[in-house]
Simulated scan of single mutants.
Amino acid sequence: MRTHNADAACGIAQAATIVGDRWNVLILREIARGHVRFDALAAELGLSRKVLTERLGRLVAAGVLHRSLYQRRPVRYEYLLTEAGAGLLPLLVAMQDWGDRWVLGDGSVTATATEDGAEHARMHALTGSRLPVDLELPGSDGVLRDAVAPDAAATVLFTYPATGVQWEEPLPGAAGCTLENRLFRDSWPAFRDAGAAVHGVSTQLPHEQAAFARAESVPYPLLSDTHLRLAAALRLPTFCGAGQVRLKRSVLVLDPRRTVRHVLFPVGDIPHAVEEARRLATALATGHG
């Protein structure tokens, strides 16, 4: 295909040579979700082995993926994101946000969702899926933490847009993040006594989360998804507000094997969602969920 001379100095044109192909984008989507082995990729994408081999070879050659040997007899590889590949996660999330808003939605910006929409269906389809094993996020103390607490009988992972942010205009579903954290804080003893962990996740920077945690005496970890690793891994609904990509409010309850057992989304009644999260996590932790 003939290209314009200016494309040589155009970052958009150069990126398009790598991610402009539909299958390349979907392969990256699946690898971000933790489907890193050839057979898993083929099954998720419904792609022929020949085409998948060709596309994976192109992405490795472009420096977006690297092959990692995990079995010698027969030889088998995992395909993992390089640093350059991880740098494409915000692009994948932006494409999803654009599709949710302009193709699957009515074009409006909202921090919530309807119960008959694509975001609702996608979130509730997470039930039974597993988080990638290497998914660690920086905590408010700057230490990388597993998104799923390794020593807990259940983990409640709740996502929220942001605390302490003045929105440019009222956005449905954006308000209430401080209230939500306070309610989880006040219920923390009940979660702890049941053997359940609580992790709050937003796209705010760790130092912003740390300041909030100190001011509100938050006893559980606040994790930063500023690089959108969790958002890409779970295809979480997002929106753009106050100049940044934000996570829509949701609550996931996971077992120790990293399997999503329960999904609360959309979250409209925050007090009810916190109480329901406590009930579901307690039941799971005590073997009744």
Rank of each mutant, 00 (worst) to 15 (best):
L41G: 00
A111Y: 03
V201K: 07
D141C: 04
R29D: 07
Q71G: 14
A9M: 14
P150Y: 11
R37Y: 04
W98P: 00
A174S: 13
L135R: 00
V245K: 08
P132F: 07
S140W: 02
G46I: 11
A13M: 15
A13F: 15
A113D: 05
L41Y: 03
C10I: 01
I12F: 14
D21Q: 13
A277S: 12
H66G: 00
R29I: 06
V253A: 10
T114D: 14
C177F: 04
L65S: 00
V103T: 08
L47K: 07
A196D: 04
D116I: 02
L264S: 09
A196I: 03
G139H: 03
S48F: 13
A232M: 06
A197Y: 11
E78G: 06
H120A: 09
A281L: 04
V103G: 07
A197R: 04
E169S: 10
L91G: 12
A16Q: 08
G142Y: 15
R246K: 15
H262T: 11
A277K: 01
T82H: 05
L228V: 10
D151W: 15
H262Q: 14
S140H: 04
H124G: 05
R249S: 11
V165P: 03
D106N: 13
A86N: 05
A283D: 07
A32R: 00
W167H: 05
G85R: 00
G87N: 10
